[in-house]
């Protein structure tokens, strides 16, 4: 994805102060995983959103403050869950290692 850089997706043009951002990268070993699917589940486990990862393995959600679960689906891997907390004005950076 254009604008991607080491350490996370570029936040240029994003109104970070008014968003609760969860973003990160999916990797297998040292390699980013393009075309994995990352689902955002709410505190009750209900689906809220899903995105495929970019060519550089990145994903981003504009969530609400609170506790969330990231569920990652990828070819040749079992679904993998990671817990994350989002806060308004903050950027939660997650690396999902398959």
């Amino acid at each position: 994805m254009c604008g991607a850089k080491t350490g996370g997706l570029s936040l240029e043009g994003v109104d970070v102060d008014n968003e609760s951002i969860i973003q990160g990268v999916v990797v297998r070993g040292d390699a980013p995983v393009n075309g994995a699917y990352v689902r955002l589940l709410d505190r009750t486990g209900e689906f809220t959103a899903e995105v495929p990862t970019s060519a550089t393995g990145h994903f981003r959600f504009f969530a609400a403050p609170g506790a969330w679960t990231l569920r990652t689906l990828a070819p040749r891997s079992e679904p993998l869950d990671r817990q994350v907390v989002a806060s308004k004005g903050g950027v939660a950076e997650i690396t999902v290692a398959l």
Partner: peptide, 19 residues
Amino acid sequence: RSPDEYAGRLLAPAHLPQE
């Protein structure tokens, strides 16, 4: 929609800016 959208805590799916 998702429970958070239903309740009014989110205005759009969470992979889109909430603008």
